[in-house]
């Protein structure tokens, strides 16, 4: 979270999920589930890991995630633009408690909390 590592600070990132993203995620994870590859109701569903992959704090090199509790509220389909927001809820030395929310223009698709240790 860099310079914005203060309680209440929020960092966001947006992306549009593509066919290529789902294929790359399948190759990197081995998750070739039918709903990702063949689709569900005619549309490919992004892997949950792909939905989370743009999360700012999780992507910071050196940040050690110590726990996550996630609720997947709705599928993310290819072509959906998703915005991931991470808000710092508490700080105790290097220990961080945070909330992560992923949403499309229509609705929240994922909400959860987590804890992490920031690099020294």
């Amino acid at each position: 979270m860099g310079e914005s590592l203060t309680v209440g600070a929020t960092r966001s990132a947006s992306r549009t999920v593509s066919d290529a993203d789902i294929a790359a995620c399948a190759r990197l994870t081995g998750d070739f589930g039918a709903h990702h590859i063949a689709g569900m109701a005619g549309k490919k569903v992004a892997q949950g890991l792909l939905t989370l992959s743009g999360t700012p704090l999780l992507a910071d090199d050196g940040v050690h995630v110590t726990g996550m509790d996630l609720r997947f509220l709705a599928p993310v389909f290819v072509g959906d633009e998703i915005t991931t927001s991470v808000t710092v809820d508490a700080l105790d030395g290097p220990a961080i408690a945070f909330t992560v929310v992923v949403a499309t223009a229509a609705a929240e698709v994922l909400r959860g909390t987590g804890t992490a240790i920031a690099p020294a």
Partner: peptide, 17 residues
């Protein structure tokens, strides 16, 4: 995630330590 794909799993909730 790979094992989830092996059973065509759609997650509702997950919690990790």
């Amino acid at each position: 995630t790979k094992l989830g794909g092996d059973i065509d799993y759609l997650s509702g909730r997950m919690s990790w330590t």
